[in-house]
Amino acid sequence: MRHFLRYLGHRLYTTWATFWFVMPFVVTYPLQWALSRRPSGHRHLHSLNRAWSRLFIRMWGMPVEVVRHSPLPAGMPCVYVANHSSYIDIPLLFRTIPGWLNIMGKISLARVPVWGPIFGRAYITVDRDNAMSRGRAMVQARRSLEAGRSVVIFPEGSISKKPGEEMGEFKDGAFQLAIAAGVPLVPVTMPLNHRFMPDVGGLRVRYSPLAITLHTPIFTTGLTAADAPRLRQQAYDTIASGFRPDARGIPEPSTWRRLPTAPSGPAPKSAPQAPQNQELASTNS
Rank of each mutant, 00 (worst) to 15 (best):
I179C: 03
L145A: 06
L203P: 12
I103A: 10
R195W: 05
D129E: 12
G157S: 13
S108D: 11
E146V: 06
P187D: 06
I153E: 04
R206P: 00
M132H: 15
V200Y: 05
R195I: 02
Y123I: 03
Q140K: 15
P187I: 07
M132R: 15
G173P: 02
S158F: 04
F175K: 04
D129W: 08
A174Q: 04
V114S: 02
G201H: 12
G105S: 14
I118C: 10
K106G: 08
Y123L: 11
N130A: 13
A174Y: 07
K171Q: 14
L192C: 03
Q176L: 15
S160K: 10
V112M: 15
A110C: 05
T96R: 11
P198F: 10
W100I: 01
I179T: 01
V186L: 08
L109K: 14
V183T: 02
A178S: 08
T96L: 11
S133N: 12
I124K: 03
V126C: 12
L185N: 06
V139M: 11
G99L: 02
E169P: 02
A110I: 04
G164R: 00
G120C: 04
R121N: 10
V126Y: 09
A110Q: 12
K171V: 04
F170R: 10
Q140Y: 09
S144M: 09
D199R: 15
R121S: 11
A137M: 09
